[in-house]
Amino acid sequence: MIHPVLPMLLVGILFGVGLYGVLARRNAVLVLIGVELMLAAAGLLFVTVGSLTADPLRAGQSMTVFIITIAAAEIAVALAVILAVFRARGNIDVSQRGSDD
């Protein structure tokens, strides 16, 4: 059994890297990846804590599954939107100003 500090550390690192990616990248897909990293951190935290507690529902594990599922759904929508953006203006740069009608 590994000591919970290590996974916790990993959670922090993953979340930080994800946040950095979100803030630093201008490509929408890379931003998506950053978000995925952050979600992964959350999932990891759930699993870690879930393994430490004796929850009859296994809530930690099931939450992780839910998060992954939701993330998948979101990615689907996100890719669709990014596609639409690309069609509309030819790039997927998230640092470009929005425009009016």
Partner: peptide, 8 residues
């Protein structure tokens, strides 16, 4: 700035 990044 109306840029998504600044929102983030």
């Amino acid at each position: 700035t109306r840029r998504p990044t600044s929102g983030l």
